[in-house]
Amino acid sequence: MNQISHLTLPEFKIVTPSTLREALSILDTNNTRSKLLAGGTDLLVDLRNRTINPNIIIDLKNIPELNELKQKGDIFVIGAAVPIADILKSKEVRKNFHSLYTALNEMCDEILRFRATIGGNLGTASPAADTAGPLLIHRARIIVASKKISREIPIQEFFIGVKQNCLMPNEIITAIHIPISTENEKSVFLKLKRNSEDLALIGVSAINYNSQTKLAFTAVAPIPILVDITAYISGNKRPNEEKFKEIWKLVKNAISPINDLRASREYRLHMTEILTRKALKEVLQK
């Protein structure tokens, strides 16, 4: 196939359902030939590059269930199609999920954040997805609907490969549920960039709650990685150098950074270590 740089988008039909039912039934009958549209910040780029070639585009933005943003008991619900700019306005998100808030604040740029969504970020399932690390450490559950059944997917099971998630072709993410911790919880998200506006060269998230400590890593493996290091931490205190070496060994075995044009494997490894140190510093006491 000739290498052509396209200015146009391929031909497709578009549908804008206003109920979830309608969306699910259109998706069900056209599942292999359709694509879901939220903010379009990944989708339109892929369409223009012809990496995808759908017949039908289903615009999810008018579906009420996907636009919820609220606390429900001890769970916080983020609708899959809520623009990130709106999520950032939520006081609850800011208060309860510090690492997610930081990640959202570092994602794309302010203009794109009026469009980009978490549903889309998970839909693309890039190894560098900025929301993935925070959602992992915050024990998020992905709420998914299809015409016949709905299910909840624990975030650790959601990613299955580079730009691959475990959704069936007839499924739509409706919301993300995140438990609100009653414990004194501390979390952080750190992103390595080449300048102020960049995709993550690596992302490191950390959380400490209820005497548990977890780390999550993005852009250093085919999928986002969660590492539980509770066993190495005592009394919510920072590890000493010896203990840190053990933690780092564990992390190093779990990740597999690559060499690419954005950074070398060596630098990614080094910076993962430095950012892990930094993350632990911030969530643990001296």
Partner: peptide, 9 residues
């Protein structure tokens, strides 16, 4: 200095 970094205030 990374060792010092982890422990500093």
């Amino acid at each position: 200095l990374k060792e010092e970094f982890l422990q500093e205030d």
